[in-house]
Amino acid sequence: MAHAGQLTAARTPRPALADPVTMVRIAIIVGVLAFWEVLSRSGWLYRDVVPSLVAISKAVGELLIDKDYYWNLGWTGFEVAVALGIGGVGGLLAGLILGSNKLLGKSFEPYLYYLGPTPKIIFFPVMIMWFGIGPGSKIALGTISCFFPIALSTAAGMRQIKPVLISVGRTYRANAWQMMTKIYIPAMRHPIINGIRLGLGVAIIGTLLAETKLSNKGIGFLIINAYSTFDMPRMYALLIVLFVLSIGVNALVGRFGGLDKIKRS
């Protein structure tokens, strides 16, 4: 009987709830959660390294109603936003200049290209010297983190513009400003949005890492504070909320910029 059921199930389209992909996903999640809970109750690991799910969910709940958390989240959000603003505008300008001028591009782009994938956090001691131990040094670190991907993808995007679009602009005798706002930027919004998305990711990492090293406010500070008081459920809660936020913001930027539609066009 079970056999026959399987056969018919394979042939007829299933209702959405029994979609096999969804079923596998649910199975994986349930499996991982069950394994976690068993591990936490078994006592194989040091106590509290793997806190029980009840403790973690309680900590997430407490975190989400905690005023202090939102105050710190506000600071981190502010730092990341300013960093993305400065680094983004700087990267965009640098990318536009390097992308539009062959000589300058060939002269300076290799430096950006090779400096891009270096660890940025090591500049933090220098940033403390320059901008102090307050939010300034965190903003600076976020700024240098996000400058590189945005500049590089803007410059690359500029060179990928179809020549015919540029010819159209020239035919209408567009001046430099009009070329920039009417031809170049609209034609390369996808690489720019992609650069901003990458830049946002590294700006978040740079800012938060700096906060864990030396600060007295922000999410990074809360994480390292939970570590030094060995409040493991709170640390898990902070990390979970942070991951959800940053994956969400990343997806939002991608969708807002129409990146999910690129493959179809």
Binding site: V49, I205, I224, A226, Y227, M235, L239, S246, I247, N250
Partner: peptide, 13 residues
Amino acid sequence: AAPIVLMYPLFLV
């Protein structure tokens, strides 16, 4: 897209 490196205090424990 997640800032995995921020988990370093957890790995420290």
